[in-house]
Design a protein around this nucleic acid. Structure first.
Ligand SMILES: [Zn+2]
Ligand SMILES: [Zn+2]
Ligand SMILES: [Zn+2]
Ligand SMILES: [Zn+2]
Lengths: 133, 133
DNA sequence: CAATTCATGTTACACAATAACATATCAGGC
DNA sequence: GCCTGATATGTTATTGTGTAACATGAATTG
């Protein structure tokens, strides 16, 4: 399942596995707590691993939550824009991408001479299953 | 200039003015420091004012910065989606909205049965003036 | 085997946000 | 005027999030 993950180190592996096990986003300190038994003692151990995992594209940061999720589409990450629909009730996160939005943001940036380095798109709300029907 | 701002209280006014004076986003603690002479002593005084200002739509929160800006378009805030292009070099923030993106996000949500409560769109990068040409 | 680079461990600290509780101010209703 | 509920404010302490600084260990390379 886990495809060609670029040779993670021990700590990176531990953090990545913790995020993969979880069924929702985890804060760095929650990860730290989960890895106490594996020898983790300080936040930096988590943050350093997360930095690498983010660079590898294996993990995403949810800015509006100060939390992290394992990437749901380890494949085609050619997309500059990755969006997240975050349910505030159950905590589930739905990762998506949309070429139209991507193009639109790109042309907006182009028009203004703005060179985007990172794009954040996050929807906070209530998912179908949590919604009173 | 400042249109029909809905009767701000003293603290709300102070915080709003601080954000309006600034030429970029301010963190809550920066605001606190700027308002020491006006009697501000604790973060809560800032956060409480910000909560109201956010509710009034006079201020926006930049999730990827943990910072706040005065709204640049106090008028037509009928838009659900408000985007920000944030220059990581000079700190300038460009507020924009785009109906195409808005529609696209809305139909995405609709299709999934997701009910969005808040939408975050933030571009981090380099603005035209800061870009080596 | 150095020399370099990268991963790791540890302590202390800075920055962001809230909890809990007390006090003050103001608007109606009587 | 006086009570009362609602909102705004002040203050202290605490929790949560993220880094700085420095030391050590392991791997790579010439
Ligand atoms: Zn992904
Ligand atoms: Zn849900
Ligand atoms: Zn605005
Ligand atoms: Zn700039």
């Amino acid at each position: 399942m886990t495809a060609e993950t670029p040779d993670l180190t021990k700590n990176q592996r531990l953090v990545f596995d913790a995020l993969s096990r979880a069924d929702g986003p985890l804060s760095a300190y929650t990860i730290l707590d989960q890895l106490r038994d594996d020898g983790f003692r300080a936040p930096l151990q988590v943050y350093r691993a997360l930095d690498k995992l983010l660079a590898f594209g294996l993990v995403h940061r949810l800015e509006s939550l100060n939390a992290f999720v394992a990437c749901a589409h380890p494949h085609c990450h050619r997309h500059a824009m990755i969006g997240f629909a975050i349910c505030e009730t159950c905590g589930q996160v739905d990762e998506f991408s949309d070429e139209v939005i991507e193009d639109r943001l790109a042309s907006f940036a182009q028009a203004r001479g703005f060179v985007p380095a990172k794009t954040t798109v996050e929807l906070r709300g209530q998912c179908a299953r949590c919604r009173p029907n």
